[in-house]
Design a protein around this nucleic acid. Sequence first.
DNA 1: ATGAAAGCGCTAACAT
DNA 2: ATGTTAGCGCTTTCAT
Lengths: 329, 329
Amino acid sequence: MAVTIGAVAKAAGVSVSTVSRALNTPDLVNAVTRERVVAAADRLGYSPNPAARSLRDGRTETLGLLIPDITNPFFPPIFKAMQERARRQGYTLLVADSDEREADELETIAAVSKKVDGLVLWASMLTEDRLAELAGRTPVVLVNRQVPEVCEVHVSLTDGIAQAAEHLKAYGHQVCVFVDGNGNRPDQSRSKSIREAFDAHGLSLIEIGPYEPRFETGVHAAPLVLAHGATAVLAHNDLVAMGVLHQLAALGASVPGDISVVGIDDTLLASVSTPSLTTIRIDPDEVASLAIDLLIGLVHERPPAAQVVQVGSRLIPRGTTGPARREPR
Amino acid sequence: MAVTIGAVAKAAGVSVSTVSRALNTPDLVNAVTRERVVAAADRLGYSPNPAARSLRDGRTETLGLLIPDITNPFFPPIFKAMQERARRQGYTLLVADSDEREADELETIAAVSKKVDGLVLWASMLTEDRLAELAGRTPVVLVNRQVPEVCEVHVSLTDGIAQAAEHLKAYGHQVCVFVDGNGNRPDQSRSKSIREAFDAHGLSLIEIGPYEPRFETGVHAAPLVLAHGATAVLAHNDLVAMGVLHQLAALGASVPGDISVVGIDDTLLASVSTPSLTTIRIDPDEVASLAIDLLIGLVHERPPAAQVVQVGSRLIPRGTTGPARREPR
DNA sequence: ATGAAAGCGCTAACAT
DNA sequence: ATGTTAGCGCTTTCAT
């Protein structure tokens, strides 16, 4: 067993309460006693037992993050930023991957929620009722799920999409395909924003899908894009866009000469593709800070400034977009 | 506060110990009492307080994993597999990203080690002494670090590299560049294995570097490859390989027509690149199972079957390798 | 300014 | 088969 507060007390020749005070509320103890205690604690390598502390005052100094799939390159930077943000405020971040399966998510929440002071739930598959009920029991911040009375960070693609529409329009594109990869997930805001933005810019939009957000979806979409006579594609995310790029190459269509391609998320994939992928960026640090600060606020029972916080997005123009081809090939 | 064992006891009209037994060691209690207890527990939604349990018997049912960088796409599948493996055995997995900085790693270990029953340390930056000392205090499994008396899972690239050499040789390549991206990290086994394998196959090897394992490293390496008159490149990892592909395209060299490219890790990048990347695969599930099972064994004080466990690798031939060009361009 | 002691929720002796 | 109780390490009244 590790060194306890009792051992430090004995070594310093004081009582355990004095040790506790010397370490937690230093001003409550005589300076010289304090020195002696701190020295003893250092010498013995004392550090408080989190389980005891947690049992005593019901806080774990740990936050939970539930995400759909850590192998989606969108999430690692967000996790990293959240972990850093939490760490600075004295919290450990516990991530769990729900694999987008509701049963797993429930089980994971059950296992994790007892070990943390609060939860960030990203794009949860759970029903509104369950989420509301959970939020009643423990501090919860939702990302991209709307539930009355529950705090939310909402990642809005509106700006980025508007910029993408503007960008394509300026390059002379008129017909664009949107590859919907949202499957049957609850949040349908993406395709709605896209319809609206493209409408507003007088671009004709052909929606195909919904499919799953996979590379293969892009492979599948590529010939459809050509068949529809479109000159631009907006893909559900970067991964799908990579599939489109891959298959367009196989079909002998050049990018951006024949077809322009736009992704969403600005993951690692976008910056390493050839040509590099024009995409819509969501700033991971911003989402992370907002979600974590909001949650920590909730944990400390500070009422949130606002129920819903918006995070914006913007277009990152790179190599896969360019002037629309004039004549058919 | 949540529902405690005392509440269940009262509801079922028995003592707390009976509740504890009914739930943990059911055969020690009368069938009908047990029913009553279980019913009460269910009705109240009881679940044991992990902090109390942990304080009581010194175990947290949590394992820690320390990795250099979760945004390296090599790690997410491994984390996911480890989490799943741990979960099946009743453990939660707590990941922490050390960002490859020794100071952070120390701080993180200090924060995390009190909250877990044991640690998996991946490619730790710590000195051998520190690692040995740490392993003396808590169960530790190292990945890709060799320390006497400490358990290790060793990911060996030997097989995969030999297959890569064989593969390139068969395609008629004679001169290959290895782009070393290992920086100044402790484990230098990669470049050693490569020298040996290429020697054994009578291939001439030009090593460049060491650089950092980044996309830009590949970009930097591409013209050097051409200047050296090589027809093949083995990159430090997939990310570096992507940089090579990107810049070769910019330089007008075709892949695999002019140059063949091989990566290492078989990350998502390899499967989504165009052309898809020939690479060396390490099975994430295998590493995960071995490391987690080894660690859980240590936690339960089962002596490990072996001090060091090897994990193999194999070549995944894809689209970036082909016959060597005969005449100079 | 310091010490003694209660109590957080749980499990495992130790009774009965 | 079940109940009573000590004790895990810590913080915080409550005394002094």
